[in-house]
């Protein structure tokens, strides 16, 4: 009795295996299609992950990654003892948090405003214009910003001076530079950021509004009790995503907007990694900082996700 059971199970297993192999064989063309992409990911994403080991080694260009000697956590000790590193961390967090504090609520407000616009033509044109800056390179944005915010002959300071006011050092004073950085970022991404909220807003059931209207709810009440709850999960998701990227910062913006006068606030992790990694060829240090950044981001992501779930939201992982 027991034996036949085993036999049956074996037969069942063999059958399933053959079925699976047949399915795999039937899908052979799909696997062929996957090969180039998987090769791409292995070569350019997973092999570099192996390269992270040089954060724990004294990297020697001639020996290569594998043969360089292990040094344990020496590289990390060196970094964590460096004041420049902590300054870069601080600047990254300051720029990211202040940009988020401005752009996050602003994006939602603009989305809600756009959602109220009924005139199709007006909506289409303004949306096109609002999305446009997203497609402009940082080199160009920085060029335009310099032209407009320049102390001596920038357009804005020229206007200020012609009205008898003092010129503002938008690009050369620490505080004002952060202001300019935020302005440029918000200018570039505000419109683009609304797309996701507008998508969520179009999904709101129209009959809810009608019912609320018939019950005598004001526009503001409809906003608070219908619209905001409807996009709450998108808001939470976007917030988690933004917060989990707190330690990452695009290199282009601080590098291109920054200058030697404001390097105290414009030297962020990405520019620091670039400076010591590419320019000074300190590969181990630079890689270690990259690893610190990745691990920090993942921890924040998990924490934020856990928090979102704790307050009854969906979370993202």
């Amino acid at each position: 009795m027991a034996q036949t059971n085993v036999k049956q199970r074996q037969a069942g297993f063999a059958e399933r295996l053959i079925k699976l192999l047949r399915r795999i064989w039937n899908c052979r063309v799909l696997y062929l299609m996957l090969i180039p992409v998987l090769a791409y990911y292995v070569i350019f994403k997973y092999i570099p992950m192996y390269g992270i080991t040089i954060a724990f080694k004294k990297y020697n260009v001639f020996k290569g990654i594998a043969d360089s000697p292990w040094v344990g956590l020496d590289v990390f000790k060196k970094i964590f003892d460096s004041r420049n590193f902590w300054e870069a961390v601080r600047n990254t967090l300051v720029l990211n948090l202040s940009t988020l504090a401005v752009s996050f609520p602003f994006t939602i407000i603009v989305s809600l405003m756009l959602n109220e616009v009924r005139h199709a033509g007006f909506k289409r044109v303004t949306q096109s214009v609002l999305y446009l800056p997203h497609f402009i390179s940082w080199v160009v944005v920085a060029g335009i910003a310099t032209n407009m915010f320049n102390m001596t002959n920038g357009t804005i300071n020229v206007i200020l001076k012609s009205h008898g006011m003092d010129a503002i050092p938008f690009l050369s004073h620490n505080g004002w530079w952060i202001f300019t950085y935020i302005v440029c970022n918000v200018w570039k991404e505000i419109g683009w950021g609304t797309i996701i909220y507008l998508a969520a807003l179009t999904g709101v059931d129209e009959s809810l509004y009608e019912a609320a209207y018939l019950d005598g709810a004001t526009k503001f009440q409809r906003l608070v009790y219908i619209t905001l709850p409807a996009i709450k999960s998108v808001i939470v998701t976007m917030l988690i995503l933004s917060i989990s990227k707190m330690m990452s910062i695009g290199l282009d913006a601080p590098l291109l907007l920054g200058n030697t006068k404001v390097s105290n606030v414009s030297e962020v992790i990405s520019t620091y990694t670039y400076n010591i990694g590419i320019l000074s060829a300190k590969y181990s240090e630079s890689t270690a900082i990259g690893l610190f950044q990745s691990v920090f981001n993942i921890i924040i992501l998990v924490l934020a996700d856990w928090f979102a779930k704790a307050i009854g939201e969906d979370g993202i992982i």
């Binding site: 070569i43 350019f44 994403k45 092999i47 570099p48 992950m49 192996y50 390269g51 992270i52 040089i54 990654i65 990405s270 990694t273 670039y274 990694g277 590419i278 590969y283 630079s286 890689t287 900082i289 990259g290 690893l291 950044q293 990745s294 993942i298």
Partner: peptide, 11 residues
């Protein structure tokens, strides 16, 4: 998660 700037550069 990724290798970061330098490991990618080396590849």
């Amino acid at each position: 998660f990724g290798g970061g700037m330098i490991p990618t550069f080396l590849v």
